[in-house]
């Protein structure tokens, strides 16, 4: 069953293009990673030479697939799922902990992808950001309706305190991306990191974060804002 996955041809071609470009692939020193990584996050140019395994490469594939999903192409939907379901489920599990609730959320998310693929607008963000926005919103809605804030805090505390990233990739470029994220996260203060994490994986509102950390509400709002802006700048998101 490992052969003939329908969408494979699609990105095999994309990678073939990259290989064709050969030396034309731009290689920047590691220090410029952030800038390179998000160089063209919203412009799916399928003839571009994004290194395979990177965010840009993935976003190019996903944008292409979304176009076809919008036309009802189920093979593309299957490929889109194959490429992204680990991310969506991974996030849902972090937020919801409960496997069944997480699976329900993943189902809702991909049904929404199927139905709203035509509404995806490359001008307002990358496919991955679009997908993860839908996913996080769904997960948060569900966790808030099914668990009290106290439960969420307790559960969050029991789960990992780290912001996870794909550290197992054997693709050099995607590993460098992950390292950039780690490096950029370290530029945040501990309290900024903590507040952003509690909101993202804990599903807490800024008010609940403030209560949990015993901090003033305006302070938490500032931490979240400043933390995300700092992360954005470091990662070179433009």
């Amino acid at each position: 069953m490992t052969t003939q996955r329908p969408g494979n041809t699609v990105f095999r071609f994309a990678r073939h293009d990259a290989a064709e470009a050969g030396n034309g692939v731009q290689r920047l020193p590691a220090g410029d990673l952030c800038l390179r990584v998000m160089d063209t996050p919203n412009a799916p140019n399928f003839d571009a030479t994004a290194p395979p395994g990177t965010a840009v490469d993935l976003n190019q594939q996903l944008a292409q697939l979304l176009e076809r999903i919008a036309d009802g192409d189920q093979a593309s939907f299957a490929e889109f799922y194959r490429l992204t379901s680990r991310r969506v489920f991974g996030m849902a599990r972090r937020v919801l902990i409960d496997p069944e609730l997480s699976e329900d959320t993943v189902q809702e998310v991909f049904l929404q992808v199927w139905q709203n693929a035509a509404k995806f607008d490359p001008g307002s963000g990358s496919p991955l950001a679009w997908l993860m926005t839908i996913s996080h919103r769904r997960a948060v809605d569900r966790v808030r309706s099914s668990q009290s804030a106290t439960e969420r805090e307790a559960r969050y505390g029991a789960s990992s305190q780290d912001i996870d990233h794909d550290s197992v990739s054997d693709q050099v470029d995607s590993r460098l991306e992950a390292e950039a994220v780690v490096r950029c996260l370290e530029t945040l203060t501990e309290t900024q990191q903590e507040s952003v994490r509690l909101a993202y994986y804990g599903g807490l509102t800024y008010r609940e974060v403030a209560e949990k950390l015993n901090a003033a509400i305006p302070t938490i709002k500032s931490r979240i804002r400043d933390g995300l802006i700092r992360l954005k700048s470091c990662l070179g998101v433009s």
Binding site: R87, D164, D166, L235
Partner: peptide, 8 residues
Amino acid sequence: LAMSFTAE
């Protein structure tokens, strides 16, 4: 956020 939180 999509770049930074990538648990799988």
